[in-house]
Design a protein around this nucleic acid. Structure first.
Lengths: 337, 337
DNA sequence: CGCGGCCATGTAATCGTTTGCATGAAGGTT
DNA sequence: AACCTTCATGCAAACGATTACATGGCCGCG
């Protein structure tokens, strides 16, 4: 009798009631008499019964899990967001499935698969490159876009990227910089666009020139920051300050110019974006725009659960505030001369 | 008729066959006649049918997913391992569930829950602090311990930690260092123990003294590396080289001593452990022991799938080789004087 | 021609829950 | 006393797939 795991039938038999009563005791105790409840609970204990989520979910027409689609799982940027998501999902009895959209051959195909396969009750999307519109999937499960949003069609949680860029420019301008460059994220990425846009607007607001040769395309990675450094090093008409669309690029840049014998912030001021953990242990520490990643994850999960509970597939988007954290990588350009 | 998602019944009706034939066409095509197959496949296309994994798994008495228990999801160390796991699981049609063991109140309780609830077909365990033995859960699903293994009872995938420590000591000794310290991981952590042990053995092999006041307890985090730096700075009898049980601690240490005006490797040589991506963009770049994290994840997933397929709950453990990557943070102590 | 075997397919039981509906007892109202 | 509520519980039909077993047609061989 101990061969297999106990089913609700075993419990019913042990308690001398029907399976319906057992089920009710477990999921909606108010409707069953107190004496019966204790009998059932004792039987549950005796048999070591655990509900079979598969069967339960099949009957209830849900899956009990949320899937997060991440462009690149190896990117540590997401791990903290995942932690935020998990901290909301776990108490709500939802499982967290994760999938890498870039690992397979066709990301859009993968997304479509997840949307239609009904493998999850909801979806958190981190990859702005994918295309989801209401039209494509009229009866899709609730989706929320986190970080990289996809236009008005999909509700999203994101930080105020334009504002972040503006804070960076303001900070550098206040230090006295006029020759400010920008290293962007990958072309087509919405975050990158928003930050670039914020950068340009903020520059013009202050009457500063946006020089196209000082706007360098990167891809958020450290290596692309190092690449930008090579370009900076080989030029003889250099900006005195650079704003990077990610901390990782800023790190790559600083490393490369330092290895080439230059000093930050003596020779060039650097502002990053994200405030990843490592930046305060660098030399110099990195001035950056803080993105509260745990909070982003938590809010995304909360909004998604809200939609699932309400049975809707839409909700109002949310914009989370950013702030500038001043550290050692920025300095007045006066010292540069 | 488009109200709900199509079921196997709808396909059967459309193709003029029974559900059994549809099921067979999809999962075991060899047994069904070619003409019937094409009819079924057409019907599948017409109806837009997708198999309901819940129902399928319920019937087949499996869940189709693997759960990874991670001590702290926010730790980027794991994200690359997750990517490795995912790259193996996805083609094998398994989902990857992740759960944070530290976020809840009682980690051991959580583990027990996952083991018994049958929510996954297998489990990858990253938290060496949890206690799983065959006795506790005689009929548990296959488990594999990754990185932090749990004694002989559980099969594991891990790197050769002792060897890594030995490589670090050898490298420093060959540079001429005799006064070598070590910053460990958290007390009780098996990785930390193995590396400490490897460190001590390697030191003694070379006739070098292991000074207890030069063995500092850390917890793998950057902050604890910075803490170790404070201790190093306040002493006047300092080791000329330090081996850290994680790159993060090494980074925290380097940052703190640099901020205090010291130079690495001029004043102290530093060796880390892990080879996380950022270390080659630091100034100086960090000499470290490489752990192939994607590979660890992949092997763990492969071994687990192997056990599941074979229906066993045991397999031979695997030890993955490490190697030392020499960079700029280590130098002969001759220059120190 | 009859029989055995093979092949393709259908029938129906099964996986373990949840839940709409029916039932019957108890108690209250007229 | 007849009737209506209310309450606790049981019955049995789903949920949507898989698969052991049964069936019937066809072919080949003696």
């Amino acid at each position: 009798m101990d061969r297999r795991t106990a089913t609700i039938q075993d419990v019913a038999r042990a308690a001398g009631v029907s399976t319906a009563t057992v089920s009710r005791t477990l999921s909606n105790p108010t409707v069953v008499a107190e004496a019966t409840q204790t009998a059932v609970l004792n039987a549950v204990r005796e048999t070591g019964y655990r509900v079979n989520h598969l069967a339960s979910n099949l009957r209830r027409q849900r899956t009990g899990s949320i899937i997060a689609l991440v462009p690149n799982l190896a990117n540590p940027f997401f791990s903290q967001i995942m932690a935020g998501i998990s901290s909301v999902l776990t108490p709500a009895q939802y499982g967290l499935l994760i999938a890498d959209t870039q690992s397979g051959p066709n990301p859009d195909e993968r997304l479509a698969h997840y949307l239609r396969s009904g493998v999850a009750d909801g979806l958190i999307l981190f990859d702005g490159a994918l295309s989801v519109t209401r039209k494509n999937y009229p009866k899709r499960p609730p989706i929320i876009a986190a970080c990289e949003w996809l236009g008005a069609d999909i509700p999203s949680v994101r930080v105020d990227n334009e504002k972040g860029a503006e804070l960076a420019v303001r900070h550098l301008a206040e230090l006295g910089h006029g020759a400010i460059g920008h290293v962007t994220g990958p072309r087509g990425n919405v975050l990158a666009k928003a930050r670039l846009n914020g950068f340009e607007v903020a520059m013009r607001c202050r009457g500063l020139e946006v020089r196209q040769d000082w706007v360098i395309e990167g891809d958020f990675s450290m290596d692309s920051g190092a690449l930008a450094a090579r370009r900076w090093l080989s030029s003889d008409d250099r900006p005195t300050a650079l704003f990077f669309s990610s901390d990782e690029m800023a790190i790559g840049f600083m490393g490369a110019v330092q290895h080439a014998g230059f000093d930050v912030p003596q020779d060039v001021s650097v502002v990053g974006f994200d405030n990843i953990e490592v930046v305060e242990h660098l030399t110099p520490t990195l001035t950056t725009i803080r993105q509260p990643r745990t909070e982003i994850g938590m809010r995304a999960a909360e909004l998604l659960l809200g939609m699932i509970d309400a049975g809707v597939s839409d909700c109002t988007s949310e914009v989370i505030a950013v702030k500038l954290i001043q550290r050692g990588s920025t300095h007045s350009p006066a010292k540069n001369s």
